[in-house]
Design a protein around this nucleic acid. Structure first.
Lengths: 191, 191
DNA sequence: CTTTTTTCTTAACCCAGATCAATGAAATTC
DNA sequence: GAATTTCATTGATCTGGGTTAAGAAAAAAG
C-alpha cells in the first residue's frame, strides 16, 4: 500500500471524495532511490514533485566545491525543485537520498491535471506552496535572529529524528557552520 | 499621475489592454505615509498590497526588544504582509516608512477581483509571488554562503540607493550584524 | 572478521564580529 | 540657530566559530 501515507496526509488538507480516489492514484507513481542517488538529473528543469514514504533526503547547492544544505525531507513531507519548475529554468539545486528512499511521485504536469479535474486539489496545492513559503521564511529569520547554537537547539527540538539519522557534517552545512564547530556545540550542550 | 509608474511596471509583466485600464485604476488608491509611520496596524491580518511610488520602507520583526530588518522596499517595488494574508492570521511583521512615502495601494480582496475580471492579471500575481519566493530564497542562501562583509558588498552593488538613503543601523540589522561591525566593514572597504 | 575509508572529536591558534564605553557628527526639536 | 537627542565611529577586550592537523571511532568494503 504505497499510497496509504500520502492519502492520509492529503486528507488532512482537503476532503478526498470516494469517487475521486482512483483519479488521484492514476496520477501517482512510486520510485525508489538508493542511498546517495539524486532525485532529478543535475541541471534539468524541475518536472516532478515527491512525497517521502520512507527515508531522508537533503536539498543542497554546491558552490566552489563546497556543499550548502538547505533542507531535509523525511517521512510524510513533500519536496521538489519548485523554483526551477516555476521559472521553467534549470537550477543548481540537488536533492539527494541520504538513506534508501521510497518516494511517491507526481509530475508537475499531472498536478495541473489534478487541479483541473478536482477543484479541491487546487486548495491542497496552494496550501503546500504556502507551507513551503512559511518554512523558507522561518529559516531566513532564524539566520537573522539566532546563533548557530540556538539554531541547533531548535532543530534538535523540532526534528530530533533528522539529527539522529543524518551525518553530522550535513547538519553542520544546514546550520551554516563547520563540522568541528557543531562537535563543540554538541559537547557544550551535553552539560 | 500617481498610477504612471505602476502601469509601466505591470506592463512589463503582462499586456495591459486599453479597455481594461479603467478597471485596473478603479481597484487602486493612493496613500501617503509620514516618516516612521507604519503600513498596517501591528497585530492585524494583512489586507493590502502596496507599490512604492516614492520613498523607502523596511519590513521587520521585533524580538526581545531588538529589531530584525528583513527587507527594504523602494521605488517601483511591491510589498505587503503576504504571509499574514495567506494564513489569515495576524503576524508580528511590521512595515514602516523610513522616508515620507507615496504608495499605490490595492486590497488583497480587490486583487482577487482583478484576477477574476482580467485573466492576464492572474499571471501578474503569480509572477509577483514567484519573485518574492526567489528573493527570499536568495536571501537565505546568502546567509548560508556569505560572510557579513560579502553580503554588504553585494547590497552595495545591487542596491546602492538603499545604502545611501537608509540609516546604517537598519542596514546592520538587515545584514545580521551590529552597527559597530558595519562601521568597521565600511572602513575596511574604503581602501 | 579484517582492512580500508569515512566521519567525528579534540587541541591550538587565529580572526571577524560582539560587547562595553567614550567621543564625535548629524539630525531633530524647540 | 542653539540645545538636545539620535546616530556613527573608534578603541579595548572578549568570544564563538574557522582553520589546520592529528588521532579516535564508526562505517563500508573486501
Amino acid at each position: 500500500m504505497p499510497f496509504e501515507n500520502i492519502t492520509k496526509i492529503i486528507g488532512q488538507f482537503v476532503e478526498v471524495k470516494e469517487e475521486d480516489y482512483e483519479f488521484y492514484v492514476k496520477m501517482l507513481s512510486v520510485v525508489h532511490l538508493k542511498k546517495n542517488e539524486c532525485w532529478e538529473p543535475i541541471g534539468t528543469i524541475g518536472k516532478n514533485m515527491g512525497f517521502v514514504n520512507k527515508g531522508i533526503l537533503r536539498q543542497y547547492y554546491t558552490k566552489d566545491g563546497e556543499d550548502f544544505t538547505e533542507m531535509f525531507f523525511s517521512e510524510n513531507e513533500f519536496f521538489g525543485n519548485f523554483i526551477s519548475y516555476l521559472k521553467n529554468k534549470p537550477t543548481e539545486l540537488i536533492i539527494q537520498a541520504l538513506e534508501p528512499c521510497e518516494i511517491v511521485m507526481i509530475t508537475f504536469d499531472n498536478l495541473q491535471k489534478l487541479y483541473a479535474h478536482i477543484p479541491a486539489a487546487e486548495r491542497f496545492g496552494r496550501l503546500i506552496a504556502e507551507q513551503k513559503l512559511i518554512e523558507m521564511h522561518d529559516k531566513t529569520s532564524a539566520f537573522l535572529m539566532q546563533s548557530p547554537e540556538e539554531r541547533y537547539a531548535k532543530l534538535l527540538e523540532s526534528k530530533p529524528d533528522i539529527v539522529q539519522r543524518v551525518k553530522q557534517y550535513y547538519i553542520a552545512q544546514y546550520l551554516g557552520i563547520r563540522p568541528e564547530s557543531l562537535s563543540r556545540i554538541r559537547k557544550r550542550a551535553m552539560k
